[in-house]
Design a protein around this nucleic acid. Sequence first.
DNA 1: ATTTAGCACTCATCTAATGAGAGTGCTAAC
DNA 2: GTTAGCACTCTCATTAGATGAGTGCTAAAT
Lengths: 344, 344
Amino acid sequence: MQMDERKKKILRAIIQDYIVTAEPIGSRTIARKFDLGISPATIRNEMSDLEVLGLIEQPYTSAGRIPSDAGYRYYVDCLMVEEELSGEEKAIIERETTRRINEIQEVITHTSKLLSQLTSLTSIVLGPLKGTSTFGQIHFLPYQPGQAIMVMVKDNGVVENHIVDIGFNVNAEELQQVAAVLNQKMRGQSLKKVKKGLLQEIHSELTKQHHLLDKALEMLAVILDGCEEKEQVYLGGTLNMLNQPEFRNLDKVKTLFRFFEEDESLKKLLQPTHEGLNITIGGENIFKEFHDCSVISATYRIDEETIGAIGVLGPTRMNYSKAIAIVDFMTRRISENLTRGCQR
Amino acid sequence: MQMDERKKKILRAIIQDYIVTAEPIGSRTIARKFDLGISPATIRNEMSDLEVLGLIEQPYTSAGRIPSDAGYRYYVDCLMVEEELSGEEKAIIERETTRRINEIQEVITHTSKLLSQLTSLTSIVLGPLKGTSTFGQIHFLPYQPGQAIMVMVKDNGVVENHIVDIGFNVNAEELQQVAAVLNQKMRGQSLKKVKKGLLQEIHSELTKQHHLLDKALEMLAVILDGCEEKEQVYLGGTLNMLNQPEFRNLDKVKTLFRFFEEDESLKKLLQPTHEGLNITIGGENIFKEFHDCSVISATYRIDEETIGAIGVLGPTRMNYSKAIAIVDFMTRRISENLTRGCQR
DNA sequence: ATTTAGCACTCATCTAATGAGAGTGCTAAC
DNA sequence: GTTAGCACTCTCATTAGATGAGTGCTAAAT
């Protein structure tokens, strides 16, 4: 059996209706709502075919039909009319993403909020990925006796500070000497590399050259821990999920929100399977908790390097064309803005 | 009518049972479950009295009784046997709060987690309060051309960093000069004061003494904004609320979680009405969303100064003795630990 | 050969009715 | 003052129809 033009029209009608109503739709209603020029009986026959093709299914005998995962997939791949964002929406995104930003954290939280507001879905934003940031500069500032404040700046604009215990007194000059060596040796190196071996090397050099006490080793170890790169995940609009009829069930809400608290799993949800826009529909999802959800995600870049990802999560019955348009447009804008920001 | 010993026993029985079962309890069941040595009929008469006194109420005719807000209040004030924490619980809290901590943020998030785990309720932790922190030291580190990283250390151990746009090039020395003056002038001053007038004063002095460009004014203004003290609120164990039978209703869950996203309101929830432990029961709460919830909160201190507050939020039908014991013990431990930490 | 009308049948959902169970309040006896 | 007995009340769970949307099949119409 082949998909002909009429079958496509009917499938599109079913999906578009279901996206709005979340109710199974029958042949009679389709004939009434959509002006296809054919009778309910004909639609019934076609629907029967579509069911054999696995594109739609009946929740129970003599209910209407709803799209299957395969149906959504076919819709997204072949049927969907790509939506052009409204001028207003574009304007909002442009405005919000070109705002001058100094810290990448701000970009992330802000994006997350905007994304969930525009789509009425839950947004997931994945911050700087491991291994992408390189060392920029490090400084030590004296703090309490036996403690120093370490400020580390990465090339992607992230600034981190940590109070480190040194365990013995060091004066500002000594700290600066240490920092100078570190800066010289580590500039532009990936943090991974720094962690792996570079530190050892530097350490032996330091103890020789500057005769800083042997305990400097500990300090370096602390720094090492302090630099632990965390790929932060931000969620936005989690409450939007509660408005979806598929989450009327309290147990589902519980499972969902429990999942939302696990950063590691959320990251996996955004893991791109290929470059560009990723669309994961229903059962395609690796987590069974999300077998009735879909994820639209895309990666953002600084220059050509992938830095992180953004995405929206919603019921399988989401408005794909809109979600895709927004995620796509936003990643482009963010990438552009970040790239520009880092070049200035 | 007076509360005699028997009435108290019965009220206590009703409340203790309701805390566990969340179901109205009747005279017969009380007689069966609790060994009070009196018949259901007698209990019925007493319950009738307790109802007239406003301490218990019937959800509907011929259901059992449940405690009223006034009943809980009476229970908490007069009836409740103060609970001694188990050795194990104490040990956990001791261990978790004495852990060496450098940054106050860690203390807060950690406390929040621990608190919700131990009580199975939702925890709210309010971070450093406005006006309590004084200026410690400030540093400027060169960053990109026209930008510097400002690192500000407050006396309570909070370290903040911000990238500030200066708009013109300044070298490291000049930055250090500015920092030196600022440090000298501002050390130990409250941030409020710094903001209000001190900056103006310093600024006029700076331009005279060091002939730094007039635009330094802008930089100072940015710093001013950067130092905006935010009283951060942390929530923990919000999902615990979903296990409470009073939140079986999805609309309630929605309202609740929407509220959880409003930091400002959450802060008010913890606003202490008096020193020490605060207990707000049901309708006593200022927000109508929480008229079937209770809040147990307490403030924590560094030395004698109140820095923030911690609290737990749960259904009015919460285990008060346990919640109170835990909140009380934890604030003491945190205060001790923070005070010790700042003195070292 | 398609398309359509007609019709019997299915199944979820809504409504009303029924009965069980828990609990009360009152009265009278202990 | 306390208790047993009893009629009464109200919720909740269950059951039985009634309703309605929808299907699949067959036969007639195009």
